[in-house]
């Protein structure tokens, strides 16, 4: 597997996040100037196998989660069911995953992703230390994406 540097991964993830959140949820994303603490309202997780193997974790505060879902559904939070909310966030992560891999390769490539899942606690990922963590800003609200890339098995 070719070596992907942390800088390359970060740049690809920023472009993919900007594109996905901008076009799909109508929220402008920039790189955070500083890391800010926030209370996580939602953890989303996806694995990918091609063209590289890895895992992507998205941690959102409640404000962003709510805004994403309300914008995509063009509806108020109170009108939406738990199923609609979960499905919406999972679809967002699915699109983000595909966009990230394409940005990383800088071209259209064969992409293979797992079905995204909702996590209830970070403890569900035992080797969290091996992830790169990137801080972004969604029109004033902080959120993070964490990424682990793995060597391809022979």
């Amino acid at each position: 597997m070719r070596e992907v540097t942390k800088e390359q991964a970060k740049a690809a993830l920023l472009r993919a996040t900007q594109n996905t959140l901008g076009e799909m949820a109508f929220i402008d994303v920039i790189e955070a100037e500083e890391q800010r603490d926030f209370e996580t309202g939602q953890l989303l997780f996806i694995e990918f196998y091609k063209p590289v193997r890895g895992r992507l974790l998205l941690a959102l505060p409640l404000e962003i989660k709510r805004e994403i879902v309300e914008n995509i559904h063009a509806a108020d939070w109170d009108e939406l069911s738990v199923n609609e909310i979960d499905d919406c966030l999972l679809e967002l992560l699915n699109v983000l995953g595909g966009n990230f891999l394409r940005e990383l390769e800088q071209k259209d490539v064969k992409v293979h992703l797992s079905f995204p899942t909702v996590l209830f606690s970070l403890e569900e990922i035992p080797d969290l230390d091996s992830f790169w963590k990137f801080s972004f800003d969604a029109e004033g609200n902080p959120f993070t994406t964490s990424l682990a890339l793995h060597e391809e098995e022979a």
Binding site: N19, T20, E23, M24, N94, V95, G97, G98, N99, R102, K107, D108, V109, K110, V111, H112, L113
Partner: peptide
């Protein structure tokens, strides 16, 4: 309409009635 548009797939699906492959997010 897919989050995984790719060249190889396009040739596999080279089918005159496949109008196109649009990448998600759709607009």
């Amino acid at each position: 309409v897919s989050s995984m548009g790719n060249e190889r797939l396009e040739t596999e699906l080279e089918d005159k009635d496949v109008m196109g492959i649009l990448r998600k997010p759709l607009t």
